[in-house]
Design a binder for these strands. Structure first.
Lengths: 169, 169
DNA sequence: GATAAATATATTGTGCACAAAATAAATCAA
DNA sequence: TTGATTTATTTTGTGCACAATATATTTATC
């Protein structure tokens, strides 16, 4: 009683306006709430992170670097599921803000190593308040939060896998 | 055994580097997978929607209009949880593509009515294939999909509510 | 050891996404 | 009615996000 069927009789939608209607209803979409949630979250984080001098994608990049530094641009892109072309300018801004340094790897001159500065490392203490601030006044049980996180993490793993497959073909 | 506690003893993180470590781990974040999922989904939709001459946000806008047209810019922004400033240029591009018209409401000259053109209405039939194409080869049971959708819809409702509260203050 | 293929970043061009400010029309108040 | 406030949309400026392309370095292949 599960699994996505995709027989040809379902793909032929031309003569089934009622099914088209159903499939295209905004409240039937799985992807739309994910899109909306992402935007709304960004909007909530914005003023809080602005006090640290960070944007949300910059904050995520710092999370990765706080776990281990230095890292190559490619490693960061993989961890964040982002395009390399997105990160280069973002990292330049983090460099301009004084949080990281960008240096060519002497071992392999193609690579660029992103390393935390003292200022970047110091920022971690203040940043630890961010998740607490965001959770404040949120009527979300720890169980619900864990469930949501795991559910979406599984989805991301699947989407990332699929994205990689497409890349290789 | 649930609910987010936010006592002052938890907010004082200065002398608890271990807790800071835990809170800032990327794989402990709820918001990051939502952000990653949103980007990955956009990436999967892109080539499919490109054949229809739409981007993902434009596709979502058309979904709303296929349910009812005309709509004001504000109604669209509310339905999509988007800023008005985001929609104006997007709608101009949809107009340039020939899918909608933009006309000042004669009843209230402040409002701009967005209405489907014949071409925009016709596009709906082809668009009905999009969800089917995207689901193809996805090992996701209908039950899991429903569960995910409802979970994230609830989150969006909460985030939207919170976002509005902030607006009024 | 020259040449080709693969790898790692950077650049370019298009399209969001948002806050803040600007514009303009409608409504309210004195 | 006039002047102030509110409401609806647009404009401006910053920062992603991505595909496609370009550039440079490394590794394979011969």
């Amino acid at each position: 009683m599960s699994g996505v069927r995709s027989g040809p009789e379902e793909l032929d939608i031309e003569n089934r306006p009622d099914q088209a209607e159903e499939l295209l209803r905004l409240d039937r979409q799985v992807c739309f709430p994910l899109y909306a949630a992402s935007n709304l979250i960004n909007r909530l984080y914005r003023p809080v992170l602005a006090e640290l001098g960070l944007t949300y994608p910059q904050y995520l990049t710092m999370l990765v670097l706080w776990e281990r530094s230095p890292r190559t641009v490619g490693e960061l892109a993989a961890a964040l599921h982002l395009d390399g072309g997105t990160l280069t300018p973002l990292l330049k801004r983090l460099e301009a803000s004084g949080f990281v340094t960008r240096t060519r790897d002497v071992e392999d001159e193609r690579r660029v190593l992103i390393e935390l500065t003292a200022q970047g490392r110091t920022l971690k203490t203040r940043a630890a308040q961010v998740p607490l601030t965001l959770m404040e006044g949120f009527e979300y049980s720890e169980e619900d939060a864990d469930n949501l996180r795991e559910t979406v993490q599984d989805l991301v793993a699947m989407l990332a896998d699929r994205s990689q497959r497409r890349e290789r073909s």
